[in-house]
Lab assay of single mutants.
Amino acid sequence: TYYTVKSGDTANKIAAQYGVSVANLRSWNGISGDLIFVGQKLIVKKG
């Protein structure tokens, strides 16, 4: 599943929404920190 980042989103918020850990969200998308951008497409695997 892909999720498009919206204004006000955070890695924590997206992870919680899908029931996954922030560490997994980072791993699936090659993100090292919490910096995400509006319009960015993230791979999300439901927990």
Rank of each mutant, 00 (worst) to 15 (best):
K46A: 13
T1F: 14
T1E: 13
R26Q: 11
S7D: 14
V5W: 05
T10Q: 04
N12M: 15
G39S: 04
T1S: 11
S7V: 15
T1P: 09
W28T: 02
G30V: 07
K6Y: 03
K46D: 11
I36H: 02
I43C: 09
V44G: 01
N24C: 15
G39N: 06
D34G: 08
A11E: 09
G8H: 06
F37A: 09
V38Q: 07
L35I: 13
L25F: 04
A15S: 07
L35Q: 14
W28S: 02
N12P: 11
L35N: 14
I31H: 04
Y2M: 09
G8R: 04
L42H: 00
S32K: 14
L35E: 15
V44Y: 03
S27W: 10
Y3M: 05
N12T: 14
G30Y: 08
Q17P: 00
T10L: 04
I14H: 00
Q17S: 10
T4F: 11
I36M: 08
T4W: 11
V20M: 09
N29H: 01
V20L: 10
Q40E: 06
S27F: 12
V22H: 03
Y18M: 09
S21Y: 04
A23Q: 12
S27Q: 13
Q40F: 05
Q40L: 07
I36V: 11
G33C: 09
R26W: 09
A16H: 11
K41V: 15
Q40C: 06
S7I: 14
I14V: 08
G47P: 15
W28K: 01
K41T: 12
A16T: 10
D9S: 01
G39K: 03
Y18D: 00
S7W: 13
G47R: 10
N29I: 02
V20E: 05
I14G: 00
S21I: 05
Y18P: 00
Q40V: 06
K6W: 03
A11I: 15
N29Q: 02
T4A: 06
Y18K: 03
Q17G: 06
D9V: 02
I43W: 10
S21D: 09
I14F: 02
T4Q: 08
T4C: 11
N29L: 03
F37I: 11
K46Q: 14
K41S: 09
G39R: 03
V22C: 07
S27H: 12
G8Q: 05
Y2N: 05
I43R: 08
Y18W: 14
R26M: 15
V38M: 07
N12Q: 15
I43Y: 08
I31P: 04
K6L: 09
V38H: 06
N12E: 15
G8V: 03
F37N: 08
A15I: 03
N29F: 03
I14R: 00
K41E: 10
K45L: 12
T1V: 14
S21Q: 06
V5Y: 02
T4Y: 12
V22I: 12
A11F: 15
R26C: 14
I31C: 09
L35G: 11
F37E: 10
S7F: 14
A11W: 15
G47F: 13
G30C: 12
G47C: 12
I14M: 01
K6G: 06
N29R: 02
V5K: 01
I31E: 05
I31L: 15
L25C: 03
Q40P: 02
V44N: 01
G33Y: 06
N29V: 01
D9K: 01
G33F: 09
L35A: 13
D34N: 11
Y3L: 03
T1R: 11
T10K: 04
D9Y: 01
W28G: 01
K46H: 12
K46P: 14
V20W: 03
N24D: 15
V38T: 08
S27Y: 11
T1M: 13
Y3P: 00
A15N: 01
V44A: 02
N29P: 01
S27P: 00
S7C: 14
G33R: 06
S27N: 11
I36R: 00
D9A: 01
A23S: 10
S27D: 14
N12D: 15
G33E: 10
V22D: 04
G39M: 04
G30L: 08
D34A: 07
S7N: 11
S27T: 11
Q17R: 13
I31T: 05
G47S: 12
G33W: 06
K41H: 10
S21H: 06
I14Y: 01
D34K: 07
Q40H: 05
D34I: 08
I36E: 02
V22K: 05
T4N: 06
G30Q: 11
V20G: 02
K41A: 08
V5S: 03
V20S: 03
V44L: 08
S7H: 13
Y3Q: 01
S27M: 14
N12W: 14
Y18T: 06
K13R: 10
G19D: 08
N12A: 15
N12H: 14
F37W: 11
K41M: 12
S7K: 13
N29M: 03
V22W: 07
V22Y: 04
Q17I: 13
I43H: 06
A23P: 06
Y2G: 04
F37T: 10
F37K: 10
L42I: 09
G30D: 11
S27L: 15
A16Q: 12
V22A: 07
I31S: 04
F37Y: 13
K46R: 12
V22P: 07
Q17K: 13
L42W: 02
L35H: 12
G8E: 06
Y3F: 03
S7M: 14
K45W: 13
Y2F: 11
G47I: 13
Y18V: 08
K6V: 11
K41I: 15
G33M: 14
I43T: 06
A16D: 11
N24T: 13
A15W: 03
S27I: 13
G39L: 04
W28H: 02
Y2E: 07
N29A: 02
G19S: 08
L25V: 04
A16W: 10
I36D: 02
A15C: 07
K41Q: 12
S21K: 06
K46T: 12
Y2A: 04
I14L: 05
L42F: 03
G47V: 13
S21N: 07
D9F: 02
T1A: 11
I36P: 04
T1H: 12
K13A: 12
R26G: 06
S32E: 15
R26D: 03
G47W: 12
G39D: 05
T10F: 03
I31K: 03
L42K: 01
K13D: 11
V20H: 01
Y18N: 07
N12C: 15
K46F: 14
S32L: 13
G39F: 05
I36Y: 05
I36F: 09
D9I: 01
V5I: 05
L25M: 04
T10M: 03
Y18L: 12
